[in-house]
């Protein structure tokens, strides 16, 4: 029992921040749901998310292989609506993080994915998930300090 309205936005966001292309992100999002609905519809809530994100990730990886990877400069250049000083430094900081860290932060803070679901997605323990998130946060804070130091 998938809440399509809600999950569409979240998977789309996940794909967008991997591909940095709106059209493509939406294509992949739709393909993800079609695959999911074909095979995995009645799974429990935690495995639902696992399947969704796994399918989405694999489809994104297939896309990567087709085109050149996005560079850090490209990420930093992504246009945003607000231009508050706050956002500029976080933009720069996050763009310096690894792909893995960015993904973790997106899942946890932007998509509100629960610890249990994340553990299922990465196939690691809940403890390990918490540890990874904390570590990613720490690295982000470190980058932010460096950014703020320039100002």
């Amino acid at each position: 029992m998938l809440d399509l309205q809600e999950q569409y936005d979240k998977i789309y966001r996940y794909c967008y921040f991997k591909l940095y292309n709106q059209e493509l992100a939406e294509d992949i999002t739709q393909e993800t749901f079609l695959k999911y609905l074909e095979h995995y519809e009645f799974t429990s809530s935690e495995t639902t998310l696992k399947y969704l994100y796994t399918i989405a990730r694999n489809l994104c990886i297939d896309e990567y292989r087709k085109q050149k990877p996005v560079s850090t400069e490209d990420i930093a250049e992504m246009p945003y609506e607000d231009n508050i000083i706050d956002n500029l430094s976080i933009k720069a900081a996050i763009s310096k993080l690894s792909e893995e860290d960015r993904e973790l932060l997106l899942l946890r803070y932007a998509n509100d994915v629960g610890i249990g679901a994340m553990a299922a997605i990465y196939n690691i323990s809940r403890f390990a998930v918490r540890r990874k998130i904390l570590a990613a946060r720490k690295r982000l804070e470190e980058e932010l300090r460096k950014e703020d130091a320039y100002e």
């Binding site: 029992m1 009645f42 809530s45």
Partner: peptide, 11 residues
Amino acid sequence: RNLLGSIGKDC
């Protein structure tokens, strides 16, 4: 109970 758990999240 399990079935209800998964359904109840979205309706």
